[in-house]
Write a protein that binds this DNA or RNA. Structure first.
Lengths: 202, 202
DNA sequence: GTAGACTGCTCTACACTGTAGACTGATGCC
DNA sequence: GGCATCAGTCTACAGTGTAGAGCAGTCTAC
């Protein structure tokens, strides 16, 4: 089968996303998806050439949800909107989200988001020569932040244990009491504000 | 077996790292590691409780190589040194590197790197209350950049194809010709310079 | 009205994965 | 000698992605 069927692709992706959301990425097997769709595992291979392609399509589906409904407002508002939508997406689909960092987002919807960012940066007065770089800088950070957040890289669980062995960690000791974070929304907002200052110094 | 043996842990991790470097993360199976060590798969379970723990240890081993030999120079030089070392690491071990973003780096060496960054930020005059946040901002970006680079998220392969369908991508069309990147070293350096301006406005 | 092609799917099978459980042979201690 | 501990093996199980063959139904052409 050279040409793939498309009719039930959305249905299959819905099933895959639901499984990942409910039981994690490890549970996302071809067999599990097939069962949920009510079909034999091998039937899926009429719609996606293999599991990797299915995952790619899943990333594409996620990106579709990223495009903001309204593309209005100041450039700061628009950038902020996209960043927040990205973070929201990560929280809604923590298991699948990290795939965004690995599977190059060349889907039409992915490119459309990039275009919106380009436009915001141009409106902000970023020199044309710098726009693509700044876009990569910002989106890399936003993706990285969202992933770190949902994956617990920022886990402060061990903050206290860190400071306890302060002997060889002078800076940690000095910062004791400031390591815990209670408001990630505020942290993210502060980060964005800092990045905005890169985009247009005030 | 409650308590784990440690004697051959380094040897096992070396084998695991070599396999990942040579044949990718997918090829990193317990059986493959065991064969390379010259032992039965089940023998590994005397040294690591399961595959996840082995991977965690692998991340720890990577981080050990991150700690700079010299902790001297201006704060800019020190931060830059760590950032470049991180990027170098990603290129040396592209398959394993992404694990850094997912497996919280609470190993002693990981914390030591964080401490060095804290110290650099303090030296730069960052208010104590902001130091941990800025550390997360910078390290999130650096990790994200390195991963994106080795994983091809920045792939410019499709840049031309993007601009071709310029109709609904106005900003892309306007930036045509500026989308290709030939020097990632320069891009990374420029990004770092921008981030330094967040740390201490000039 | 029947032959042939096409579609959408199933069934079986293979090589591979992580790892639980039981075992063996060697070493060191009393 | 007797026993415990250790390092490693062997077997087995449930699960994975997917190749290859086959099968019932529908559409088209003569």
């Amino acid at each position: 089968m050279r040409k793939l069927k498309t009719s039930r692709q959305p249905e299959i992706l819905d099933a895959a996303l639901a499984i990942a959301d409910e039981r994690g990425l490890d549970a996302l097997s071809m067999r599990a998806v097939a069962e949920r769709v009510g079909v034999t595992p091998m039937a899926l291979y009429g719609y996606f050439r293999n599991k990797d392609e299915l995952l790619d399509a899943l990333v594409g589906r996620l990106l579709t949800g990223l495009t903001p409904s309204e593309a209005a407002g100041t450039w700061q508002e628009r950038l902020s909107e996209i960043a927040q939508a990205t973070r929201r997406l990560a929280r809604e689909h923590p298991a699948v989200f990290p795939l965004l960092l690995f599977r190059a987002s060349v889907t039409p919807d992915g490119v459309r988001v990039v275009d919106l960012i380009y436009q915001a940066l141009l409106d902000a007065g970023v020199p044309e020569a710098d726009v693509p770089r700044i876009e990569r800088l910002v989106s890399t950070f936003v993706l990285g932040f969202a992933i770190s957040e949902v994956n617990g890289r920022f886990s402060s669980a061990s903050d206290e244990s860190r400071t306890r062995r302060g002997a060889d960690l002078p800076a940690h000791r000095r910062l004791a009491g400031r390591l815990a974070v209670d408001d990630w929304d505020a942290e993210f907002a502060a980060d964005l504000a800092d990045l905005m200052r890169i985009i247009r110094p005030v």
